[in-house]
Design a protein around this nucleic acid. Structure first.
Length: 439
DNA sequence: TCTGGGGTCCTAGGACCC
DNA sequence: TCTGGGGTCCTAGGACCC
């Protein structure tokens, strides 16, 4: 097979993607403020300290898998003196925001993809220039924030993800940077990776494709587009196209694009009565509504769900119910009223519930709605009054860490009262409003 | 005792209309 | 009395992501 070789200095590409991804992000954030932990294995745990959601390299090297229940590795933790942290999302989000600021400074077409990664898009650039950019990005983020990143360089987002994976896996040889703009390294990388490493191939697709004899990314890349679309779907077809350097996955980084807000937690203690569930739900509603108003949005769809644990021998039960509102709202009292009705409809006695939640959907930036003869809109005065009240509640609750004002049914207990956080790190960066910015 | 918390997109199928 | 097909909109559910 012969590949076309393009001169790295003189050949100019229309469009190049750099995927920048922070290494072991949550663990790296914790370590920023605890340099004494350098070199020691670290874990960040989920909300109830129930399972592992992030691992430092040392912890990965010990063979600790993602998502494993903490009680299953108690001995390992003791034996290797592994340091564990409860998840501190406000810290991670703050560090994330600072990292993204650096990236946006270095590239005006930055698409933030998740809390720890972003695609940087450069136009009319040679491979050498792309590599120079990648080095600049890696050094800037490390020098200014203290976080290590990996950078994958390719013609499509799917390939940039794969290149990034290679860069991080072989950090010694790649220094965290890898380009597959040329055909030769791209084809080699495809041949050396199973399809499960490809962005968009999950467990189910992996099984189905394996049954068809498709195991490597390369085997997937040579499939016929139309046949894949017919047998599977358009999403997988786009993945196959992307493996062949066709840039077909759109920019979805529209900042106000959120379509729904979910708030849910699992409980440390099993809840059995409608009353207990209602109190927990009321807290979730309050938090979700607060988030909704922060985004200056209204919702017209409310879903409530409750369920028992997937594990153990107790009887299993799960239920959800959705209500659509004629008039969009962000008023905690209205949403709580509807949520309460929904909860009453789905509640079944005799089960030990371990999780509940609320989803606010159909988010809109205005209250506009299709009026009909039977729907009475609030008068502008009523709307204004509701907005003012909610604003006041948000302001007072924002003044401290405690939630000071409750809707009556939230009860005296806060949502946190239902969950455990045994080894939470301090909120280093968000405790003081006037903390000097790192950059 | 103890098993995360968010999100997105696509598709199939039902309701309804002409 | 019986019989259609095509279009749109909505929703639930499945698959994926970090």
């Amino acid at each position: 097979m012969s590949f076309e070789f393009r001169d790295p200095v003189t050949y100019c590409y229309d469009k190049v993607y750099l995927l920048v991804d922070c290494n072991n992000f949550f663990c790296s954030c914790e370590r920023l403020f605890r340099p004494d932990l350098e070199g020691r294995p670290l874990l960040v745990l989920s909300n109830n300290d129930g399972c592992v959601i992030a691992r430092s390299q040392e912890a990965k090297d010990l063979g600790i898998p993602m998502g494993i229940a903490v009680f299953k590795i108690k001995n390992l933790i003791r034996r290797h003196h592994i340091v564990t942290f409860s998840s501190n999302f406000s810290l991670y989000l703050d560090i994330s925001r600072r990292v993204m600021e650096v990236l946006e400074h270095l590239c005006d077409d930055t698409q933030v993809y998740s809390v720890d990664e972003a695609f940087l898009c450069f136009k009319h650039i040679s491979e050498k220039e792309a590599l120079d950019k990648a080095i600049l990005v890696r050094n800037a983020v490390f020098n200014l924030i203290g976080i290590n990143v990996g950078v994958g360089i390719a013609h499509t987002k799917t390939l940039a993800k794969l290149a990034n994976h290679h860069a991080k896996k072989h950090r010694q040889e790649t220094y965290g940077l890898y380009s597959i703009l040329q055909d030769m390294p791209r084809i080699n990388l495809l041949k050396n990776n199973p399809i499960s490493e490809v962005w968009g191939i999950g467990r189910r697709l992996n099984e189905r494709l394996n049954e068809q004899g498709i195991h490597t990314a390369y085997q997937l890349s040579v499939q016929n587009y139309e046949a894949i679309k017919k047998e599977y779907n358009i999403v997988l077809m786009r993945t196959v196209q992307e493996l062949n350097d066709l840039d077909v996955i759109e920019d979805e980084s529209d900042i106000n694009h959120t379509m729904q807000i979910m708030w849910s937690r699992s409980f440390t203690k099993r809840l059995t009565t409608l009353d207990e569930l209602h109190q927990a739900l009321a807290n979730f509603v309050a938090s979700a509504c607060h988030k909704l108003r922060n985004q200056n949005k209204y919702c017209s769809q409310i879903t409530v769900f409750i369920r028992t644990s997937y594990f153990g021998n107790d009887p299993k039960f799960a239920a959800d119910k959705t209500a659509n509102l004629k008039v969009p709202t962000s008023d905690t009292r209205e949403i709580l009223y509807v949520a309460t009705q929904l909860l009453k409809m789905i509640f079944a006695p005799g089960y030990k519930y371990n999780k509940a939640g609320i989803i606010l959907g159909n988010l809109t930036a205005t209250r506009s709605f299709q009026s009909d003869l039977f729907t009475k809109a609030k008068t502008p005065q009523e709307q204004e009054k509701s907005d003012q009240l909610m604003k006041a509640i948000d302001q007072i609750n924002h003044q401290g860490h405690e939630q000071n004002i409750f809707i009556a049914s939230q009860g005296p207990q806060k949502a946190e009262a239902f969950s455990n956080k045994n080894s939470l790190s301090p909120s280093y960066t968000t405790s003081w409003d006037d903390l000097p910015k790192l950059i």
